[in-house]
Design a protein around this nucleic acid. Sequence first.
DNA 1: GTAGGTTGTAACCTTAACGCTTACAGCCTG
DNA 2: CAGGCTGTAAGCGTTAAGGTTACAACCTAC
Lengths: 146, 146
Amino acid sequence: MRFSSRLPVATHILLCIALLGHEHKTTSTFLAGSVGVNPVIVRNVLGQLKAAGIVTVEPGVGGASLARAPEEITLRDVLEAVEDDAGVFRMHEHPSPECPVGRNVHAVLGAELDAAERAMMDRLASATLADLADETRGLIAQQEQA
Amino acid sequence: MRFSSRLPVATHILLCIALLGHEHKTTSTFLAGSVGVNPVIVRNVLGQLKAAGIVTVEPGVGGASLARAPEEITLRDVLEAVEDDAGVFRMHEHPSPECPVGRNVHAVLGAELDAAERAMMDRLASATLADLADETRGLIAQQEQA
DNA sequence: GTAGGTTGTAACCTTAACGCTTACAGCCTG
DNA sequence: CAGGCTGTAAGCGTTAAGGTTACAACCTAC
């Protein structure tokens, strides 16, 4: 039971664009070098972020930039951009309709699981790309001082 | 990015034990019938719940019962019993240590993802088996009335 | 206009996880 | 001792993720 690494990869990409975009051309090859994955994966993720209106990509010339202010991009936005929206939890498929428990477990447990998922999503929605960029900038400054 | 169905299966099993345990012998075969899966899967889940101190199982004679009061069993307990504790989110493995972003993304993003996971876990911890059993009992009563 | 670098996809492969099933040893009660 | 149950190992099929290669479409520089 584990999430794919698409959210971390996408966030890494966005941080690179936000922090390094002014001094490097953020091509898929450059980003792939920082993230440590194949450039095709970067292009796929970038495509999903573009479809969600989070970034713009220059075909031909190369490079990506943010389509919105970093304050307007939350981790929830990123997660929903790169993962399918089928929900986090998956019920078992064939509870017996003859059993009084099997007949109702879907409704009772489903409500609880949805609430748990919502709690996680709300937390992710409270973290913006601007927050993460600021924190990262702080760490970089510390490291340069040392 | 989806969870396995072990948590729903385990919860279903516990509800059966809590609600039907006094009138049926809750063998793995009986439980498998209600849940709609193979008896071996029930035995495996039951084994994990037993290891976590949530149920007791009678080898030989057959049948399972709750080891604690339903009020003392939360969905979080169940989740931790049946899923490995490696954490929900998984970072990408090879961010470049040469890139200032790659060097710090793990710390910055990891803290945020941990907080989101904790929010979900806290929500699950607030739902007890007693709550779910009560709700289920309510639905059953409604259905019998109709 | 052409060469070089870039994006956008499609196709294929490998690996890992999940769930299902069969099989069998060990245990208990009637 | 016979029958039913638990505990567990082993193998199979499916699905998803991630990596890689390949190639068409696009843009800029020369």
